[in-house]
Measured scan of single mutants.
Amino acid sequence: VDYIVEYDYDAQHDDELTIRKGDIIKNVKKLEEEGWLEGELNGKRGMFPDNFVKEIK
């Protein structure tokens, strides 16, 4: 499942992704941690907030 970024987010920890509006995040999975998703961007896998992105259908 792929998501498109709607709002910029700067990573706060090493396991998070810095994302920018218009980025496409690939292979996204829901995490047990409420409010977070995990996906791949530019060869890096990491977490990001689910309210900054929208699923591409």
Rank of each mutant, 00 (worst) to 15 (best):
V1Q: 10
V1G: 11
V1I: 10
V1W: 04
D2I: 09
D2W: 15
D2S: 14
D2R: 15
D2K: 15
D2N: 15
Y3L: 02
Y3P: 00
Y3N: 03
I4A: 07
I4E: 11
I4V: 08
I4H: 04
I4Y: 09
V5L: 01
V5H: 01
V5T: 13
E6Q: 08
E6K: 05
E6D: 03
E6H: 09
E6A: 08
Y7H: 14
Y7L: 14
Y7G: 15
Y7D: 15
D8A: 04
D8P: 13
D8Y: 07
D8F: 04
D8K: 06
Y9W: 10
Y9I: 01
Y9M: 02
Y9N: 04
Y9K: 05
Y9T: 01
D10T: 12
D10E: 09
D10K: 12
D10R: 12
D10N: 12
A11H: 04
A11K: 09
A11R: 08
A11T: 03
Q12R: 09
Q12D: 06
D14W: 09
D14L: 13
D14K: 13
D14I: 12
D15H: 12
D15A: 13
D15T: 10
E16K: 04
E16P: 00
E16I: 02
E16H: 09
E16Q: 13
E16R: 04
L17F: 03
L17D: 00
L17A: 01
T18G: 05
T18Q: 08
T18L: 03
T18D: 06
I19G: 04
I19Q: 00
I19E: 00
I19N: 01
I19A: 05
I19S: 02
R20G: 05
R20H: 08
R20Y: 08
R20Q: 09
R20S: 05
K21H: 09
K21V: 14
G22A: 05
G22E: 05
D23Y: 06
D23A: 13
D23I: 04
D23P: 01
D23F: 11
D23K: 03
I24E: 03
I24H: 05
I24N: 03
I25E: 00
I25L: 11
K26I: 12
K26R: 15
N27H: 11
N27A: 10
V28H: 01
V28F: 01
V28E: 00
V28T: 07
V28G: 15
K29Q: 11
K29S: 13
K29L: 12
K30M: 09
K30F: 08
K30H: 10
K30P: 14
K30V: 11
K30Y: 10
K30G: 10
L31I: 11
L31G: 11
L31D: 05
L31W: 07
L31A: 14
E32Y: 07
E32L: 14
E32N: 11
E32K: 12
E33Y: 12
E33M: 11
E33S: 13
E33V: 13
E33A: 14
E34V: 10
E34N: 10
E34R: 11
G35E: 05
G35M: 05
G35T: 07
W36Q: 05
W36K: 07
W36D: 01
L37E: 01
L37T: 04
L37Y: 04
E38K: 08
E38L: 10
E38Q: 06
E38W: 13
E38M: 09
E38D: 13
G39E: 00
E40P: 00
E40Y: 09
E40M: 08
L41F: 08
L41H: 07
L41Q: 04
L41Y: 09
L41P: 00
L41A: 06
N42P: 02
G43R: 05
G43W: 05
K44A: 09
K44E: 10
K44F: 11
K44I: 11
R45M: 07
R45V: 14
R45T: 09
G46A: 06
G46Q: 01
G46N: 01
G46T: 01
G46S: 02
M47R: 11
M47F: 08
M47T: 12
M47I: 11
F48Y: 02
F48L: 13
F48D: 00
F48N: 01
F48P: 00
P49F: 09
P49I: 07
P49D: 03
D50E: 15
D50I: 06
D50A: 15
N51V: 10
N51E: 15
N51Y: 06
N51I: 06
N51Q: 12
F52D: 03
V53S: 04
K54I: 05
K54A: 11
I56M: 06
I56P: 02
I56H: 06
I56Q: 05
I56L: 11
K57W: 15
